[in-house]
Amino acid sequence: MHPITVTVNGTKYERQVEDRLLLSDFLRHDLLLAGTHVGCEHGVCGACTVIFDGAPVRSCLMFAAQTDGHRIETVEGLAVDRDHLHPLQQAMRDCHGLQCGYCTPGILMTMKVFLEETPNPDEAQIREALSGNLCRCTGYQHIVEAVKLAAERMRK
């Protein structure tokens, strides 16, 4: 067991974790932040993407023990509440960028950092940035439109 202190969405958590506990399982089942979803557990689908020290990473490919002293953001930290969504969440809703919604948290976390780094992206850049997140429902088109719309609103 490892003692860790990790900051998730601004809250500091002190926990004892087993060596092999995946970060995704730690977030979901220990911290009960179940908004981070697990789709493949082998680093392909991107559903479990969280922001680790400012960079989107796959939480199924990290151990909880590796987060000691680090900062994590998950989908639960994006909106103030359901009535006050992050511009990216709002645009996803306005453009119907989600269907079953299972891959959505990973996409939001990937795109949040992408838009911070690329505030005025074109469609090709958005598709490239999205390519590490699989969505089986939407065919991506409405997600691309949502990211464009969010970028536009966030620039204002």
């Binding site: 680093g43 680790f52 990473v57 796959r58 490919l61 992408f114 590490g132």
Partner: peptide, 12 residues
């Protein structure tokens, strides 16, 4: 570099 996996992987 752009051919190597995806941004989330390249970050780690």
């Amino acid at each position: 570099l752009p051919h190597i996996a995806h941004p989330q992987i390249r970050n780690r």
